[in-house]
């Protein structure tokens, strides 16, 4: 057991008899038992469902009856002729890309503001970051108090100005924009903190040297700040994109996916199709598409951002 702990791979001397070498290697492997509980959990609660989900996506199962029949690719062909699903897929991409874009713009802007020696900046940072820690369900509930039709705070302002009440959340385009805005405001703190850490890791000598060369303001920003923030961009963008594509809580609370199906994301639609429409096979196919979509977006983005980093 003891030599398992010396982990530098020490090649056994040529004189070691084969059976001793084999025993040592086996003993060395014993330490791997330490990750077995974790692997067991992954196997039972993630990998098995993932594989089983692919299997179910080829069936017409309703979710509770003991019978189900194989239907081949029918669920997948149905997905791509289903207008509701196409709309929901578009919504999901809008939620993902929309929140990612705004979180980068505002997150970087706020980080650059906080990077200046201002009084009270720690308090500002703490307050802007605060919503990150609050459940999106609660943020959604609180924002509903602002956007509600009959007693929402914004409509109070609107009627006080002598205009008609606005149906903020029952217009699907407006509702989608509001959901993106709420998600952006809630999690902009994450991007802000990542960019702030990135900005603080840029040595001030770079700026001083470029000042001597006559570079200022915008030029310094594009030539020094942006290229050196590349790792922070990669981290923040991937994190926000995965979060946006998985969006669930805020939608459920603020619109419930409505009006109709018009503000659902793939995540929220899966629950509806499974429990309300009792189409478990079809919901499984949506799950597979959602998983593949996130893998694809992450891989493409990672390779784009990393290639960029090498060039920089």
């Amino acid at each position: 057991m003891a030599e398992t702990l010396i982990t530098k791979p020490s090649p056994l001397p040529a004189t070691t008899p084969p059976h001793v070498a084999r025993r040592r290697r086996r003993k060395g492997g014993l330490v791997n038992l330490l990750y077995m509980p974790a692997l067991l959990l992954f196997a039972v609660f993630t990998v098995y469902p993932l594989i089983n989900g692919v299997g179910l996506s080829f069936t017409n199962w309703d979710g509770y009856s003991p019978e189900k029949a194989m239907v081949g690719l029918a669920n997948y062909t149905r997905l791509f002729s289903d207008d509701t699903f196409r709309m929901v897929l578009t919504n999901t991409v809008v939620y993902g890309l929309g929140s990612t874009l705004f979180q980068q713009v505002f997150g970087l802007g706020l980080a650059m503001a906080l990077d200046r020696p201002l009084r009270g900046r720690n308090a500002a940072r703490a307050v802007i970051y605060l919503p990150v820690l609050v459940s999106p369900v609660i943020m959604g509930t609180m924002y509903y108090l602002l956007f509600g039709y009959n007693n929402g705070a914004f409509n109070d302002v609107v009627t006080a100005l002598g205009m008609d009440r606005v149906a903020w959340l029952s217009n699907s385009t407006a509702a989608i924009a509001i959901i993106v805005a709420v998600n952006t405001l809630q999690f902009v703190g994450i991007s802000m903190i990542i960019y702030l850490a990135g900005l603080q890791s840029i040595p001030s000598e770079y700026y001083e040297a470029s000042m001597l060369d006559g570079a200022r303001g915008w030029k310094q920003f594009t030539n020094i700040t942006l290229p050196l923030l590349q790792p922070a961009f990669a981290t923040s963008i991937v994190l926000n994109l995965i979060g946006g594509l998985k969006l669930f809580d805020v939608i459920k609370v603020m619109t419930g996916g409505g009006p109709g199906y018009s503000t659902n994301s793939v995540s929220t639609l899966i629950g509806v199709v499974y429990f309300d429409n009792q189409s478990a096979g079809y919901a499984s196919a949506m799950g597979v598409v959602l998983f593949l979509m996130i893998v694809l977006f992450t891989l493409v983005l990672n390779s784009l951002l990393n290639r960029h980093r090498l060039e920089a």
């Binding site: 179910l56 998985k246 669930f248 499974y274 597979v288 959602l290 998983f291």
Partner: peptide, 8 residues
């Protein structure tokens, strides 16, 4: 994504 394996 957690919801992608909801059914299974």
């Amino acid at each position: 994504p957690p919801l992608s394996i909801l059914v299974p």
